[in-house]
Structure formats: structure tokens, C-alpha cells
């Protein structure tokens, strides 16, 4: 069976991803656009993520040891390039919401010894908790360092009664020793996609949002289905001239703001950031 499968679908098995029009016939490819000019750094997305995805609060000591579990973090940079050139941050701070980039060629995927992380049909970088043995190779290989390991058995510690009543039953509470990461709120997508399938349609644009995109007060995070060319996210990608399957984007015009972080590492992320703007005349 397997051998005949191997021979029959040889072409598919030998296809190297990502390739152009990879999602042409697929119903879904989830992607995001984050506008850094409207991100105000308010942390609403972070807390929303804690609430939606049963993230453990680790406490001061463990946070200090670098064992925090925030799937999305707001980074705040100063200055330009190597150092701050002025005494004061004259152009404000630089906020960067950093979450799993759901890379199309994710460096974490090929190195997982047990295949706990792989690429799903709708273009997500999955993490199957109960398959994970905790080798942490994925985290070692992730250039963005957005994978978080359960260093402690948080279920025992992080939700004293009755805090555990808040836990989302659609999301597993991860035990010690497994890796976890942003899932683009898979449980929401799953429920939405199932409902849509029952109705015999595909999800409408904006019908399902990730927790961060839904909370974001400035709507800096746009989430949607890149395979649906009419969706807002697809239009934005197109307008920003970012091609999913390219690692060097050809921009035909000046002033187009879309870029992907660490694109030069050939990770093909699914998140496009829009450059922050500053009125340098002010």
C-alpha cells in the first residue's frame, strides 16, 4: 500500500516547498499583516493570547530565568541599527509584536526528531503536544526564538483553584517537557472551518480571527486567508508586493512598506510587517 502510494504520488512527494501558487487550489492559507505604524505597543494582544491559549503565568523568578511562556511578545527597540545615536529616543520607541511567523520553510520543522512539528495543509506550522518528546531542537533552530518550552509542570502551579475554570477547553494545557508556540488560534480556525464545511462553503473574510487580531485596539493586526484572493490580507500582501514563495521581493515602487522579518534566512514567513512611519520633518 505504502509502496504503491509512494510510486503513484511520486511527483507530490518530491515537490520542494514553498513553490509558486502552492495554495492556488487550497481553500485556506492563513497569513497575517502587522502594521507597525499603528501598533501602539499596548499589550492587549499579549493578554488576549494568555486568555485564549491557556498560557501559563510563570512568576517573577522564572520569568527572570528566561522561562516565560508568551506566544506573542511586544519587543521594544531603541535607535537605529547598532546603537542609539541620540541621547533621547527622538522618534519614539520601536514596537514589534513578535509571534510565530508560521514560516513556509520553517527551520523548526525538518529538525524535529519525532515529527511533532510539521506543515499543515492550510499553511500553518503545527505543534502536536502529545507527540513532542522535548528535544528542543526546534527552538534551537528557530531564528525568531518564538517557541516556548514547558520547563516546569505549569498545570500544577499556574492555575490555583478556581483560576483553572477560565481555561479554554479547546486548547490542551501543556504538561512539562513539551514545546509550545503560537498556533494562529487553531481552535478558532478549526471550529470555523468545520462549520463552514458543514455549510458547504469556505470561511468568509474576517469570520474567524486570532485572539490577538480580534483584541488589537488599533487593528494593527490583520489576519485572514491568503488563498482567498479577495480577502483583506491577500489584497494587502499584493499591494505590499510580498510574494509568499520568494525570499527576495521585487518592489516596483518606492514607499511600499511590506517586509518579512529575517527573510534572508529563507524561512518564507507568513507574516508581513509594514514598516513603521515617522514624519522626519516634525
Amino acid at each position: 500500500m505504502s509502496l504503491s502510494n509512494l510510486i503513484q504520488n511520486w511527483q507530490m512527494f518530491r515537490t520542494r516547498r514553498p513553490y509558486e501558487d502552492q495554495y492556488k487550489d487550497a481553500p485556506y492559507k492563513w497569513a497575517m499583516v502587522i502594521d507597525l505604524d499603528t501598533c501602539i505597543g499596548c499589550n492587549a494582544c499579549t493578554v488576549a493570547c494568555y486568555a485564549e491559549n491557556n498560557l501559563a503565568v510563570v512568576g517573577k523568578e522564572r520569568f527572570g530565568k528566561g522561562q516565560a511562556m508568551h506566544w506573542i511578545r511586544i519587543e521594544r527597540y531603541w535607535g537605529e541599527g547598532e546603537e542609539m545615536k541620540t541621547d533621547f529616543p527622538e522618534r519614539g520607541a520601536q514596537y514589534l509584536p513578535m509571534l510565530c511567523q508560521q514560516c513556509e520553510a520553517a527551520p523548526c520543522e525538518p529538525v524535529c526528531p519525532v515529527g511533532a512539528t510539521h506543515h499543515s495543509a492550510d499553511g500553518l506550522n503545527t505543534q502536536v503536544y502529545n507527540r513532542c518528546v522535548g528535544s528542543r531542537y526546534c527552538s534551537a533552530n528557530c531564528p525568531y526564538k518564538v517557541r516556548y518550552f514547558n520547563w516546569w509542570n505549569y498545570p500544577e502551579r499556574a492555575w490555583p483553584n478556581p483560576l483553572e475554570l477560565q481555561l479554554n477547553p479547546d486548547v490542551t494545557v501543556r504538561s512539562k517537557g513539551v514545546m509550545e508556540k503560537c498556533t494562529f488560534c487553531m481552535q478558532r480556525l478549526r471550529a470555523g472551518m468545520d462549520k463552514a464545511k458543514t455549510d458547504g462553503r469556505i470561511l468568509a473574510d474576517g469570520e474567524v480571527l486570532t485572539a490577538c487580531a480580534q483584541a488589537c485596539p488599533t487593528s494593527a493586526i490583520t489576519f485572514g486567508n491568503l488563498a482567498d484572493k479577495k480577502s483583506k490580507v491577500a489584497r494587502m500582501w499584493k499591494k505590499q508586493q510580498v510574494d509568499l514563495a520568494k525570499n527576495v521581493q521585487d518592489k516596483t515602487e518606492e514607499g511600499i512598506r511590506g517586509y518579512r522579518v529575517l527573510e534572508e534566512l529563507n524561512t518564507y514567513p507568513s507574516i508581513v510587517y509594514l514598516e513603521r512611519l515617522r514624519n522626519f520633518a516634525a
Binding site: 507597525l36 519587543e75 521594544r76 527597540y77 531603541w78 535607535g79 537605529e80 541599527g81 547598532e82 546603537e83 542609539m84 522618534r91 520601536q94 514596537y95 514589534l96 514607499g255 512598506r257 517586509y259 522579518v261 529575517l262 510587517y273 514598516e275 513603521r276 512611519l277 515617522r278 514624519n279 522626519f280 520633518a281
Partner: peptide, 15 residues
């Protein structure tokens, strides 16, 4: 707390 030459947060002139 600076970007060390990586293009993480890029800034463009508004005009």
C-alpha cells in the same frame, strides 16, 4: 535593545 543591523522594525519616512 537595539536591532544590531537586522531588519526587525524598519522605519520609513512618512512622506
Amino acid at each position: 535593545n537595539v536591532q544590531h543591523g537586522q531588519k526587525l522594525v524598519a522605519t520609513l519616512s512618512a512622506d
